[in-house]
Computed example of a mutant assay.
Amino acid sequence: MTKENPHSLPTSDTVLHPIRLPFGRSSQNIEDIRSVDDDDGFVFHIDRSLLLDYTKLVVGDLIGKGGNSNVYNGWYEDRPVAIKKVLLPETTDEATLECKANFQREVNLLSKIEHKNVIKFVAASDGPMILITELMEGGSLQKHLKNIYPITLSLEQCLSYALDISQAMEYLHANGIIHRDLKPGNILLTKDQNHVKLADFGLARDDICDEMTCEAGTYRYMAPELMSKNPLPKGAKKSYDHKADVYSFALTLWSLIKNQIPFKDRKDLMAAYATMNNIRPSLDEFPEEIVPLLQSCWVEDPKLRPEFKEITGTLIRILQNIYTTKINALASIKRDVEANGESEAESSKENKNLLKRDVEANGESDNIIAQYPRMDEKKLKNKSKFKRFISYFRSCIAF
């Protein structure tokens, strides 16, 4: 890669080094981390500084389980981290080799990636297979959406998350990396829940070729070109490219905005069958400004799908239009409030004159004349303040 590429991966002196490190101090769940049934190692192409030193590792609580891994929180070199231990399958030797290959590929890839919207790699070991990354305290996007269901996020928040994802994918594709499993469960939230980062590179590929393993990923978010209507042998190859991630992005964005699982009324395989038959999730009552983007991203022909650079630009324009509309609305409210203030002042002056004439006609003293108008003005002033506050408060909530 040339230096002119703004998305190029950082370069460093890498070593071919088989990992065999001694275990250090124990902690609450260290035995769970250390237990391993095999002793077959392999090599990582990573810098020596990224090799796991168990003497610096403190394991905390189990915070999540995946199909082939357990995730713990903990500390490494006095920083909070997530500790992912890969579990070997209890099936065939072929499955075991595939699991190890995926782990090795994930470590080699993630250790080279530096992007604000990709989870940060910290360290790794193969004895057992452990991956240490930064701790994302906001949890997964999938879990967050489930926790707030049936409430949906604001359109602005959805598009902000989508922009984070698109920028991360733009970076990956610029470096020849396909994720192949883009979905809400592999997107993690920051502690303040303002941003998201992409995670889980177990199925990612950096050696894009004409043919790759078919049906890699999750059926509900998988592009149709990865699937086949006819049964294929395990590990069979199909021709597809990075545009498969664009399709998965579209289904992820749909799920994010609707807070629903795509094809929720169908089983996994039936959802895949629907995808292959060019059926897509409903766009009824969907935000109009997002529909063209979704339709272009999940079109059946991968060549017609946009690149993530284009998607990023589209999302920025949509967000700018939304914010411009809201800013103009706020400015209009401000003008109305100011106009109402002037109108109420004129009304107050007129009421004061009327009250003065009524009091004088009834023969009241000047003190009473002076007192009543002031009381009336004070009430009008307080009422005006309250109305302005309510208007401003409502506009802030809407914004």
Rank of each mutant, 00 (worst) to 15 (best):
Y161V: 06
A162S: 10
K378L: 12
P80R: 04
G127F: 10
D241I: 05
Y247F: 15
Y392Q: 05
H144R: 08
M375W: 02
S391H: 11
D265N: 13
Q260P: 00
L203F: 09
F103T: 04
A339W: 08
L355K: 11
D206H: 13
L269K: 05
A204S: 05
C209K: 03
K146N: 07
P150G: 08
E344R: 15
G176W: 04
N117M: 07
V58G: 00
C214P: 00
L283C: 05
E77M: 10
R280C: 11
V81M: 06
A345L: 15
A95C: 13
G64F: 11
D301W: 08
K385V: 12
A123V: 11
R205I: 13
I279V: 15
S125R: 07
E289V: 14
Y54V: 07
R105Y: 03
S12W: 10
N367D: 04
G41H: 11
E360L: 08
Q371D: 00
P128G: 03
A329H: 05
L189P: 01
K387C: 07
F399E: 02
T92W: 14
Y372L: 15
D336Q: 06
N108T: 13
T55Y: 09
T218P: 01
E377K: 06
T252R: 08
G66K: 05
G66M: 05
